[in-house]
Simulated assay, not measured.
Amino acid sequence: MKKYELYRETELPITMLAAWDFFSNPTNLSKITPAEMDFKVVTSNLPQHIHNGLIIEYVVRPLAGVPLKWISQISSVNAPHSFVDEQLKGPYAYWHHEHTFEEKGGKVLMKDKVTYAVPFGVLGQLANKLVVRSKLEEIFNYRTKKILEFFKAD
């Protein structure tokens, strides 16, 4: 299985606790996901903040409006510094997303490192080259834009 990485750094004009409060709330993911993906959290009674072992179910429409079930698990939490979510079921053969937060000169440096694999062997590698990678880049570019708008410095 060929694995790929996507990496982003975003400097946020907020405190570490404000960053953690927003990003550790599982319902906030829909606020930073492109509307055309029709991202919906299906899990009911979610806690206000993630914890180790939390399983979250979503429905998302990443391509051509086709609904896909995505189930992720929060596999590691080190509040307020980091957490990891991993796909249990969904469109990828493998998905491991590390979120880290570092205080830096009165701001927060947020880092996202996604390691992923596309199913279907060589066909999946071709799909990654033609569609998947650019779609992920587009989603993370959108996220960065929305996050910076949300936390715009006054």
Rank of each mutant, 00 (worst) to 15 (best):
G65Q: 13
N128G: 00
G124M: 00
L109M: 14
T100C: 06
T144P: 03
L123M: 06
A93G: 01
L68K: 10
I74S: 10
L68G: 01
K113H: 13
F120C: 00
H99Y: 12
I147Q: 10
S44W: 03
T144C: 11
S72Q: 11
E138W: 10
E137P: 02
N141R: 05
L109S: 15
I50T: 11
A117K: 00
H51P: 04
V77F: 03
K104H: 15
W70N: 03
V114F: 03
V131F: 04
E57Y: 03
N141C: 05
I50P: 05
I50F: 01
L88D: 04
I74R: 11
Y116Q: 04
V60H: 01
K145D: 10
S75A: 08
T100Y: 08
K111W: 05
G121I: 00
V122H: 00
K111S: 12
V77C: 06
L63E: 06
D85V: 09
G124T: 00
P62A: 13
P62W: 02
V114I: 06
Y142W: 05
S72I: 08
V77P: 06
L123H: 01
T100W: 04
E98T: 14
N141F: 02
I139H: 10
P47G: 09
R133N: 12
S75L: 02
P67E: 04
D112F: 14
K113I: 13
K145M: 08
V132S: 00
G65I: 09
F101M: 14
K111Q: 09
L126W: 02
S44Q: 14
V66R: 15
K145F: 03
G90T: 04
L109E: 15
